[in-house]
């Protein structure tokens, strides 16, 4: 039935060699690379065009008052979440829906933990200390880039929760199609984690 409406949801397309969902996801991720790339370019340009002294100077590592310990812990959380995401996909490939859903649940829980760390251990304390978006160009970019990344994390959690709950009905009618959808979710989640892996050293470690 679904193949009549949307062709190549399970079998690869003869030209691209990919099923439609995966091809669409890679096109979407290409647009995401451009979106985040624009922000990284802005960061680099603003950093290197900032004066070396004075109020408008780019803050040094110590002047940023960012906790690299919290960010490092968050990096570990996201790396583990990528592993559990792949385990969910592998479980479904092995025809084990219960295990697949369990690993998806663990991934969503880890993503929520990441957001909780970010909000309660970073954003709220910074905001109370006066490091708001208007504090400096650096903090403006910091909130924009990490906030945009955070929105992507929320998007990932929503998709995972959908596939654990109502979306899992698809398994009964077409398990391969459902497994492919989880693979696409995994591709998206790996991209979100890779963005953080670039954000972490850029914002927290580099002087």
């Amino acid at each position: 039935m679904s193949a009549d409406v949307l062709p190549y949801t399970v079998k690869p397309h003869p030209i691209t060699g990919l099923y439609s969902g995966k091809f669409g996801m890679w096109l979407f991720l290409a647009s995401e690379v451009m979106l985040f790339g624009a922000f990284f370019s802005s960061y680099i340009l603003l950093k290197f065009s900032a004066p070396s002294e004075g109020a408008a100077a780019w803050p040094t590592h110590d002047e940023r008052h960012l906790s690299w310990v919290v960010a490092g812990a968050n990096t570990l959380v996201l790396i583990i979440s990528s592993v559990t995401m792949v385990m969910a996909w592998l479980s479904l490939k092995g025809n084990n829906l219960a295990k697949g859903r369990l690993f998806l649940g663990v991934t969503a829980a880890l993503a929520s933990l990441f957001l909780a760390f970010k909000i309660f251990l970073e954003y709220i304390p910074h905001w109370h200390e006066g490091y708001t978006t208007s504090h400096s160009v650096f903090f403006g970019l910091y909130y924009t880039m990490t906030g945009l990344h955070g929105l992507h994390v929320i998007g990932g959690i929503l998709v995972m929760v959908y596939f654990i709950g109502p979306g899992s009905k698809l398994w009964r009618s077409d398990p391969e199609y459902y497994t492919n959808r989880i693979e696409c979710t995994g591709l998206y989640w790996h991209f979100v984690d890779l963005v953080w892996i670039v954000l972490f050293p850029t914002l927290y470690l580099m002087n």
Partner: peptide, 20 residues
């Protein structure tokens, strides 16, 4: 595939942890 992207992810993560 997710397999290939995961391998890339593990390589990048290894480089990050070593650098960190």
């Amino acid at each position: 595939s997710l397999k290939a992207f995961h391998v890339v992810f593990v390589i990048v993560s290894s480089l990050l942890t070593a650098g960190f």
